[in-house]
Amino acid sequence: MTSKVIMLVEDNQSDIELTKRAFLKHHISNELLIAHDGQEALDYLFATDTSPMPAVVLLDLKLPRVDGLEVLRRIRDDERTRRLPVVILTSSKEEPDVIKSYDLGVNSYIRKPVDFVQFSNAIQTLGLYWLVLNESPPQRSKGPEEES
């Protein structure tokens, strides 16, 4: 459990901190990668270094530079990240957003509640589900394709 990395794509610092707090509160000590906008997230995911591929990406929709739906689309378009579990974690529950996300192949759509207790519970469930219960797709090493 400890080896798995969670990626959080979120521009709101308060939300980042609260999310971290929620993880901590529920003793989820996995490394939390923070991307502050869509571009940063994509840069990390498609970078050819040896940094680990996250077990799950928690993705906000309203993001500077590249928005969440676009990030999701690119993740799903790329062979390397096609099977990467992505959970939309956003304030909006506008129907078009939900529909588009599922159309693009999101694994889950979670609306952040205003009530922190509820939010914390959601985070706990999320972590438990994606880090413990869910069987991850076969781990591919990031980085350049080995010649074979």
Partner: peptide, 17 residues
Amino acid sequence: SHDLRAPLRGIDGWSLA
């Protein structure tokens, strides 16, 4: 829907904290 709720969550969260 997106922007107005985020600060509220912050207020709530940090008050609780």
